[in-house]
């Protein structure tokens, strides 16, 4: 399994990388949505993206919309990992095509649980 971690904070990317590496994921990273899209157009297409919402250049919501607009990427699972925690934001992200949503702050178990709900790690 390959995970792309998209967050403008290096520290947060490092936390998420350690969690998914422990689950034997290979990882790639991007510091905003546009950088992630560039990587995907260049052929680095992950099984799952862990996407922050608030980022410079391109935010996570726009990134999700862009990914969902490309039928070639329909198998990519999208999981928001963000401090945005209003109900309406979660509804918006799901409507735009996010499969799961984790609210920051989170414990490592929260990420593992959600990945296992998505069938990406054995329960």
């Amino acid at each position: 399994m390959r995970a792309m971690i998209i967050d403008d904070s290096r520290a947060m990317r490092s936390i998420l990388r350690r969690i998914v590496t422990d689950l034997d994921f290979e990882t790639s990273e991007a510091e905003h949505g546009q950088a992630a899209l560039d990587q995907m157009y260049a052929g680095v297409v992950p099984d799952v993206c862990l996407v922050d919402w608030n980022m410079p250049v391109m935010d996570g919501y726009t990134f999700i919309t862009e990914v969902r607009a490309n039928p070639e990427w329909r198998d990519v699972t999208l999981m928001m990992v963000t401090t945005e925690s209003e109900q309406r934001q979660i509804v918006r992200a799901l409507a735009a095509g996010a499969h799961e949503y984790v609210i920051k702050p989170f414990t490592p178990d929260a990420i593992v649980d959600k990945l296992s709900l998505l069938g990406l790690v054995p329960a």
Binding site: S9, A11, M12, T82, E86
Partner: peptide, 27 residues
């Protein structure tokens, strides 16, 4: 700077969710 920024982002986002909205959180 990066770590402390992420810290305030988490606290700020959660404070935002407790107040009337919709609002936007800055970087």
């Amino acid at each position: 700077a990066d770590a402390v920024g992420e810290l305030v982002n988490m606290v700020g986002g959660n404070v935002k969710s407790l107040m009337p909205g919709p609002s936007v959180l800055s970087l």
